[in-house]
């Protein structure tokens, strides 16, 4: 009788990469709902459109690389990239913007490095930054949030904005981070009074979407799909720096900690971007450092840089530092007095 030969262990845990990716997608749903509520149907359309592009691009490259299609497509990683990018783009982003962004993210940001697991940079952020540099106009045309006086576009309007190239001017408004950055003369109180998209401590709509991202992140933490280290590092750095440089309520102010924690891509970055295992640091200590770095750079770019939000740039910069962080944060192995640090000595 032929007995099967295989190596130990003979049983495996229930973890599956595709399952983890699915959890991430599930965790994005609340934020997707919040964004749709405040910024209209464009977000949903974008998510679907980006998913199609991502799967198509992935399949195309896999076919070129002669890899089994369904096996790799089913790991859901392309979908995660697509969703993250779609949710970072303005709701009224035209179809070609998504096509360029997602296509570049999947083909250049991921597959050309050797596919999943081998990309040094977060693909979604690669696509995002490319678009931000190339098409600043389109990338900052955010649809005005619900409650700001301009009604959110319906499905039909969204469709025509995205696919027919109809004018978006009537629907858009500057984002809170933009407003703050452009402001030179008004005090914070005046600013808040003059801008309908600012309300409470932060921006209209943005507060709730950030909260929804936070909820999704907590779900991932509970499911043990991510560890708390990187998000904690990023949020901590952002909070501490914004507290240090808050500078009161005058016109020079860079915004309060609450404003920074719940504006722009903060929560999305903290729980869905810096937690990307592939392009981040691997040990827990390393992740904490990685998060701190992203938080710090994000604040620096927001406060003194040339772009309204800095999460994407900060992530890419720290991606470059990740291997170095890994080398310097090796844990101490059992039975060894000290952890090994740095590179291996080559003879």
């Amino acid at each position: 009788m032929a007995l099967i030969r295989q190596t130990s262990p003979h049983t495996l845990g229930q973890n599956k990469t595709s399952h983890i990716m699915r959890l991430v997608l599930i965790a994005l749903v609340p934020a997707l709902a919040a964004q749709t509520w405040f910024f209209g149907w464009g977000i949903i359309i974008n998510v679907i459109w980006c998913s199609v592009i991502a799967l198509g691009a992935e399949a195309w490259i896999l076919a070129l690389r002669k890899r089994p299609l369904s096996f790799y497509l089913r790991d859901n990683s392309a979908l995660v990239t697509a969703w993250l990018l779609a949710m970072a783009l303005p709701a009224a982003a035209p179809w070609w913007l998504s096509l360029i962004g997602v296509g570049f993210a999947i083909i250049f940001g991921k597959q050309l490095y050797g596919g999943m697991g081998n990309n040094p940079f977060n693909p979604a952020m690669v696509g995002y930054v490319l678009l931000l540099i190339s098409f600043p106009q389109e990338m900052t045309s955010w649809v005005a949030p619900l409650g700001s006086g301009i009604s959110a576009p319906g499905i039909g309007d969204s469709f025509s904005m995205i696919f027919a190239g109809s004018a978006v001017d009537g629907w858009t408004m500057a984002t809170p981070l933009d407003i703050l950055r452009e402001n030179k003369s008004l005090t914070m109180n005046e600013l808040w009074q003059n801008s309908p998209q600012l309300s409470g401590m932060t921006g209209l709509g943005w507060f709730w979407t950030n909260l929804a991202f936070l909820a999704g992140g907590l779900y991932l933490l509970k499911e043990k799909a991510i560890s708390w280290h990187a998000p904690a590092g990023m949020l901590l750095a952002l909070a501490v720096l914004s507290l240090l440089f808050w500078n009161g309520t005058g016109s020079e102010s860079h915004g309060s900690p609450i404003f920074h924690l719940f504006s722009g891509a903060t929560m999305m970055g903290a729980f869905f971007i810096v937690t990307d295992p592939v392009s981040g640091a691997t040990s827990n200590k390393g992740r904490l450092l990685f998060g701190l770095g992203v938080g710090t750079l994000t604040y620096v770019i927001r406060a003194w840089g040339g772009y309204p939000d800095g999460v994407a740039f900060a992530t890419l910069l720290m991606n470059m530092a990740a291997p170095a962080i890994d080398y310097w944060t090796q844990p101490r192995t059992y039975g060894h007095r000290k952890p090994k640090r740095g590179m291996a000595k080559t003879k």
């Binding site: 003979h10 990469t17 983890i20 999943m116 697991g117 295992p277 691997t282």
Partner: peptide, 15 residues
């Protein structure tokens, strides 16, 4: 003891 599923790329999840 089912045969192990095919190996996928390491996603550096740290598990």
């Amino acid at each position: 003891f089912p045969p192990p599923p095919p190996e996928q790329a390491c996603i550096r999840c740290g598990m």
